[in-house]
């Protein structure tokens, strides 16, 4: 089982990810509503996989990704965001995220993205 943390300020999106993820493969260890909470929970629960919104209060997604990657460079971060600007998405990946999922997404889209993100951990 891979430990998964969900970071999004929207209750609807958090619930959707919690509902849609593959429960045979992932165990949700924390859900955070902003960047500061995400960093605190990350140090507490050490998740291997994180889904990350970009626009959040306190510490935004980009800054949060950089901090999480500094704590654990091996963490797999999937950015889940409504793309207003591709440059922002690219910056998130440059800071340490490994994939990008565009909002709105279907439950299948999310499952497929998480599978693709963690494909190399199957062996």
């Amino acid at each position: 089982m891979l430990k998964l943390m969900v970071v999004d300020d929207s209750n609807i999106i958090r619930s959707k990810i919690c509902r849609a993820h593959n429960a045979d493969k992932f165990e949700i260890v924390a859900t955070a509503t902003d960047g500061a909470e995400a960093i605190a929970f990350f140090e507490m629960h050490h998740p291997q996989v994180v889904t990350m919104d970009l626009t959040m209060p306190n510490i935004d997604g980009i800054e949060c990704i950089a901090r999480l990657a500094a704590i654990n460079p091996e963490v797999l971060i999937l950015v889940v965001s409504a793309l207003s600007d591709q440059a922002t998405g690219i910056e998130a990946l440059e800071k340490g995220a490994s994939g990008f999922l565009l909002k709105p997404f279907s439950e299948n889209d999310l499952r497929a993205a998480l599978d693709e993100l963690t494909e190399h951990l199957n062996d």
Partner: peptide
């Protein structure tokens, strides 16, 4: 142009999943 240069940089990074960055293609 600047975004495209950064995007190609990501494509050369094995840690970035090719299938998961298609939406960022500027």
């Amino acid at each position: 142009r600047a975004t495209a240069t950064s995007y190609i940089g990501l494509l050369f990074d094995l840690r970035k999943k090719q299938k998961l960055i298609g939406d960022l293609n500027p």
